[in-house]
Amino acid sequence: MDEKDLKSMIENILADMTDDKKAAATTTTTDTRSAATPATNDSTVSGDVLDDITKIDLKKQFLQDDPHDREGYLKIKSFTPARLGMGRVGTRYKTASVLRFRADHAAAQDAVFSDVDPQLPKDMGFFETQTTCTSKDEFLTRPDYGRKFSDETVAAIKKNVTPNPKIQMVVGDGLSSAAIEANVKEIIPAIQQGLKVYGLGFETKDVIFVKYARVGAEDQIGEVTGADVVCMLVGERPGLVTAKSMSAYIAYKPTIGMPEANRTVVSNIHDGGMPAVEAGAYIAELLDKMVRLKKSGIDLKAAENAGA
């Protein structure tokens, strides 16, 4: 099967999917194929581009043939992005599901393996650093290198970043550069504005951007800067639902080797989860709480519960 045949086949399948009428479903396979031949000629002439399958809302895509209760199934689907009701062909997924799965998987891979647009930290005016990792491959295979800075980098941070701040912001690529590109521009001003409510703040020139960053990198930054609270925005390992999910890992006076329980995390920051600006507002309130109570993680939770 050459590329042209494949393209026309996919076109037909997609046309069937968008056609809600049962008539299309009852058409036999042979009919579809014979109808495909003239369609191939048409498409060569028109030069149309296929619709972007990743734009289809999975919560509304329902491919099950002859469902007993379509409305009921769609209602169930409205609560989850899981690929339910995708139907099947014999023992396999339908082509549309397979293509979408591969497209989403590719987006996840891209998010991991590509770098954050080098222009982004410059536009934002962040102070740029890199962990001891020298390449993406090393970053992925040696998590420990992604938590450390070289002596030169440490010296540069000390020289350029205002020491002993109440709040030290850090932005790290982590496992999804797409997440950083999608959310950082919105969340930074939202956090800054929120902090003003509590009489706190930070300047964007003091925000440390870290390439090849693991969450633990914030611990060394805490020690180097002497900050009260370190808040690190980091791209989360992408899944098939979204490749753009970011988290904030926040710790009061973090130190290298401290227990993970000392971190407070705000996760699921993306347009299908918590919107970046609203998350920023929430983080600002959280930062104020930590500065006041001098606690984070489990200790903060315990203090809050005791007070409630």
């Binding site: 504005q193 929120g194 003003k196 409510v197 918590m274 600006v277 609203e278 507002a281 929430y282 600002a284």
Partner: peptide, 13 residues
């Protein structure tokens, strides 16, 4: 929509 806290901070400013 879920945006009241951010909007509230903006109003405060």
């Amino acid at each position: 929509e879920d945006m009241a806290k951010a909007l509230g901070h903006s109003l405060f400013a």
